[in-house]
Nucleic acid binder design. Structure first.
Length: 736
DNA sequence: GTAGGGTTAG
C-alpha cells in the first residue's frame, strides 16, 4: 500500500505523532482516520483503535484490510462520511474491491453520490458485489436511468448478475416505469435460473403492478411455489395501486387462509383498499387485528389509520390517531391536513398548516397543495392572496402542482384574472395545469376563453387527456356553446381518448339546457354504456328549465330507482310539476318525500367583510346588526320595485329547490349577505358571496338589478358555478 | 435486497 503524496493534508497527518489516544476517532472524519491509519501502519507493528462502541481493538500492521473495514464501519455509524477524499483512498485501496464496495455504500448513505461514482469509475475491475452496490445506490437516490445504464454496462463487461442485482434493477424499472426493459430483465432472470428466487420474483410482482400490468403481476404471483408475506403484500398493494381495491381485499382474504402472519406494512395497503371502497367496517376490523398483533403503536401504521379514518369522514377519530404522535412526521401532518380539507373542514386544515409552519416543520408540495385546496373551499380572496404570497416566497413558487392548485383556488374564490396570472407566470405547464385553467373558465361561464385556451394548448404541443375534455365540455355547457361542444365531443377519438360516462353526461347537459331535449334523449339511448345518475340528473335539470313534464317524469323514475333517497331529484321533479302548475302532483310528491323521510338541505350564504367570514341562513336575524341589515333589505326592495322589478311569487313559493320562506322572498340568505355587504363596505366595493345551493331564479333576477341600482360588481359562487353581476347583467347570460 | 401511508385539473 502507498499514500499518494499529492494530498498535502494527508502528508501532514502522516507526520502526526503515532499516539492512538491523540487520534480521537470520535471527532475525526473518515478522511483523517484513514490517513492516520496509513501513516500509523507504516511505522508500527500493531494498531489499537478505540471504536464507537467504546471498545478498543488491535490490528496487526500490514494487515490493513480488517483495519479499514472497522474504520469505515466506524465512520459510517458516526455519520463521519462526509470529508473523505475518494481519490486518495482509491489509490491506496486499488486491490481491495470489498473495501471499495463498503465505501460506495457508505457514500450513498450520506448522499455523496459523486464520490461514490468517482470511486467506482476509478476501480479497474469491479466484481458483482461492487456492481450491485453502485446500481443500488443510484436506485436509492432516484437515479433510475443511471442505475439501468450501469446494469447494461455490467452486462457488456460480462459480469454475471446475481439475485441482488435483479432486485435492484427491477426496482429501478418499477420506479420509472420501464416496461420493455423490465421484460428483458425477466428473460435474463429466467435464463440465469432465478425463476424460483422469491426475492427476485417479489420484485417482478411489484414491477408489473407498478407498470399497470396487474394481470402479468398476478401470473407471476400464482406461478410461484413459495410465497412470503412480502409476496402477498406486493400483490395486495398492486391491486390497490391499479384501482382494484376489491381484488386487493379478496387476495388479503386468501392470504389470511395461509399460516403467514401479516406484517404491519400489509395492513397499510389493506387499509388503503378499505378507504377506496369506503369500507369503514373492513378498516375497523383491520384496526382490531392490528391491536391484537401488537401493531397499534407502529408509527407508520398510525399514519395509515389517520389517513383511513380521515378519508372515511371520521375526522375526529383520525385526529385521535394524529394526537397519539408527539412529533408527527411530514406524511402524518399531510394526511391530517388533507383529511380536514377533503371533508370540508377547510378552517381546521388551514389552522393545522399554520401550526406546522409555526413549529418549523419542513413542508413539501403536498402540505401546501392540500392547504391551498382548503383555501379554495373557504372562498376568501384575502386568504387566497395570503396563501399566494406565502408560496411566492417559498421554494414551491415554481412547482407546477402547487401553481395548479393556486389556479383552482383563485377560480373558486371568484377571481379568474388572478388564476390566469398564475397560469401565465408558470413555465413548463403540464396537461393538468392547462385543464385546470380551462376548468376555471368553465365555472366562470367563459366558454369561448376555454376553447381558445384549448387551441393554445394544442399549439404548445401538450396532448389533452380525458379530464381536459370534461373541462372543455363543461365550459361549453355553461356557456350554451352547443355546436362547439358537440364537435369537441366527437373529436376526442382523434386524441385516442375514449369518452367516459362523465363526458356523455356533459353532452346530455349541453343539449338539454339548450332545449334540445329530444336530441338529448336520443343521445342517451344510443350510449354504449348504461346511463347512470349523472346522465338522468342532467336530463331532469334540462326538463326543469324547459318545463318538459313527460321526459322529466321518465328521468326522475330512473333516478328514483338508482338512488331512492336523494332529496334533490324529488325536489327537481316537484319543481317541474310546479312550473307546469300541476299542484296535485306537487303535493303527492311532497307526501312521498315525507314518507321517505327526506328533507331539504338548509340554504346558507357567506360573505367576507374585513377578513371575517359571516354566514347567513334564510331569514337570519342572529347577526348583531340584523336591524340595520333588514332596514337595508327593505329599502333595497323598494328601490328594486321602483326600477320595475316584480317577482313570480306563485311559482317561487312552490320552488322547493330553494329556501322556503315564511315571510317575503327578499330574505333568502344571499340577499341578506348582500345587504350586509352593502352596509359594511364603501360604495363601489366588489361583493363576493358564496352560496351552498344553486342560485334561485328570483334572487338571480334581483341581484342583476341590485348590481345596477347600487353600481356594484357582485360575484356569487353557487353550488355549480360563478355568477358575475354587473350593470344589470350576469356573466352566465341567464344560462345556468 | 423485495412490500406501505400524504398532493393538483372534473
Amino acid at each position: 500500500m502507498y499514500v499518494r503524496k499529492s494530498s498535502s493534508s494527508l502528508v501532514s497527518l502522516c507526520r502526526l505523532p503515532a499516539n492512538v489516544q491523540a487520534l480521537r476517532p470520535v471527532t475525526l472524519g473518515l478522511f483523517e482516520l484513514t490517513a492516520f491509519a496509513f501513516g500509523f501502519i507504516r511505522s508500527h507493528s500493531s494498531v489499537r483503535l478505540r471504536l464507537n462502541s467504546g471498545k478498543q481493538k488491535s490490528f496487526r500492521a500490514l494487515v490493513p484490510d480488517s483495519c479499514f473495514m472497522h474504520l469505515i464501519d466506524n465512520a459510517i455509524n458516526r455519520s463521519h462520511f462526509n470529508q473523505v477524499n475518494a481519490r486518495v483512498l482509491v489509490s491506496g485501496l486499488r486491490c481491495h474491491g470489498f473495501l471499495v464496495t463498503k465505501l460506495v455504500n457508505g457514500y450513498a448513505r450520506v448522499g455523496e453520490m459523486r464520490y461514490a461514482r468517482d470511486l467506482f469509475d476509478d476501480f479497474p475491475d469491479p466484481d458483482v458485489f461492487l456492481w450491485n452496490a453502485i446500481i443500488r445506490c443510484h436506485s436509492r437516490h432516484n437515479l433510475f436511468r443511471d442505475a439501468l445504464g450501469l446494469y447494461s454496462k455490467m452486462q457488456l463487461l460480462w459480469v454475471s448478475p446475481d439475485s441482488f442485482t435483479f432486485t435492484c434493477v427491477l426496482k429501478a424499472c418499477s420506479a420509472l416505469p420501464a416496461l420493455e426493459m423490465g421484460r428483458r430483465v425477466q428473460c435474463q432472470i429466467f435464463r440465469r435460473g432465478f425463476d424460483s428466487d422469491v426475492f427476485v420474483q417479489n420484485g417482478l410482482v411489484t414491477f408489473y403492478a407498478k407498470c399497470g400490468e396487474i394481470e402479468l403481476a398476478n401470473k407471476v404471483f400464482w406461478r410461484l411455489s413459495e410465497r412470503t408475506i412480502v409476496t402477498w403484500t406486493s400483490m395486495i398493494s398492486g391491486y390497490v395501486q391499479n384501482g382494484q381495491p376489491l381484488e386487493a381485499l379478496r387476495v388479503y382474504g386468501q392470504m389470511r387462509k395461509t399460516n403467514l402472519k401479516p406484517e404491519w406494512i400489509t395492513f397499510v395497503s389493506v387499509l388503503k383498499a378499505c378507504t377506496d371502497v369506503e369500507g369503514l367496517e373492513g378498516g375497523e376490523s383491520i384496526h382490531g387485528c392490528a391491536i391484537k398483533m401488537g401493531f397499534e403503536l407502529e408509527p407508520d401504521l398510525i399514519v395509515a389509520f389517520t389517513a383511513f379514518y380521515a378519508k372515511c369522514g371520521l375526522v375526529t377519530v383520525a385526529r385521535l390517531f394524529f394526537d397519539l404522535v408527539e412529533t408527527p412526521n411530514l406524511v402524518l401532518w399531510n394526511a391530517m391536513i388533507s383529511g380536514y380539507s377533503k371533508n370540508g373542514l377547510a378552517h381546521e386544515a388551514i389552522a393545522l398548516f399554520r401550526r406546522m409552519v409555526k413549529k418549523n416543520v419542513i413542508l413539501d408540495s403536498i402540505s401546501v397543495t392540500s392547504t391551498i385546496s382548503a383555501c379554495g373551499q373557504v372562498g376568501s380572496i384575502d386568504l387566497a392572496k395570503w396563501m399566494d404570497e406565502y408560496i411566492a416566497s417559498s421554494e414551491f413558487k415554481d412547482a407546477v402542482v402547487v401553481n395548479t392548485a393556486l389556479i383552482d383556488m383563485y377560480a373558486k374564490c371568484g377571481s379568474i384574472n388572478l388564476s390566469r396570472d398564475v397560469f401565465n407566470r408558470t413555465k413548463d405547464k403540464d396537461v393538468v395545469m392547462w385543464s385546470a385553467m380551462i376548468a376555471a373558465y368553465a365555472v366562470h361561464g367563459e366558454g369561448q376563453e376555454a376553447i381558445d385556451l384549448f387551441k393554445a394548448m394544442r399549439k404548445a404541443g401538450v396532448p389533452p387527456n380525458d379530464v381536459t375534455f370534461v373541462s372543455l365540455l363543461s365550459a361549453c355547457k355553461h356557456s350554451g356553446l352547443v355546436e362547439d361542444g358537440w364537435k369537441l365531443f366527437h373529436c376526442m377519438s382523434e386524441y385516442s381518448i375514449q369518452p367516459r360516462h362523465q363526458h356523455y353526461a356533459c353532452v346530455v347537459d349541453l343539449l338539454g339546457r339548450a332545449g334540445y331535449l329530444d336530441r338529448a334523449y336520443e343521445f342517451i339511448r344510443n350510449m354504449p354504456m348504461e346511463p347512470g345518475l349523472s346522465i338522468w340528473g342532467a336530463l331532469l335539470t334540462a326538463c326543469k328549465i324547459h318545463q318538459h313534464v313527460p321526459l322529466g317524469e321518465l328521468a326522475a323514475e330512473r333516478l328514483f330507482s338508482l338512488d331512492p333517497y336523494s332529496t334533490g331529484h324529488h325536489v327537481q321533479l316537484s319543481n317541474i310539476y310546479a312550473s307546469a302548475r300541476m299542484w296535485d302532483r306537487v303535493s303527492k310528491l311532497r307526501v312521498l318525500m315525507k314518507e321517505k323521510g327526506l328533507s331539504k338541505d338548509l340554504g346558507y350564504s357567506s360573505i367576507e367583510i374585513n377578513g371575517k367570514l359571516q354566514v347567513f341562513q334564510v331569514g337570519d336575524k342572529s347577526h348583531p346588526r340584523f336591524k340595520e341589515i333588514f332596514d337595508e333589505l327593505e329599502s333595497l326592495e323598494r328601490r328594486l320595485k321602483e326600477a320595475g322589478f316584480s317577482i313570480d311569487a306563485e311559482s317561487v313559493l312552490h320552488d322547493l329547490d330553494h329556501e322556503e320562506t315564511e315571510e317575503t322572498l327578499c330574505n333568502h340568505s344571499e340577499r341578506i349577505a348582500i345587504a350586509y355587504g352593502l352596509i359594511s363596505t364603501p360604495p363601489g366595493t366588489t361583493l363576493r358571496i358564496i352560496k351552498n345551493l344553486r342560485a334561485c331564479v328570483n334572487c338571480h333576477a334581483a341581484i342583476k338589478l341590485i348590481s345596477k341600482v347600487e353600481n356594484r360588481v357582485i360575484v356569487v359562487r353557487d353550488a355549480n358555478r360563478f355568477h358575475h353581476f354587473k350593470d344589470g347583467n350576469c356573466s352566465c347570460g341567464d344560462y345556468w
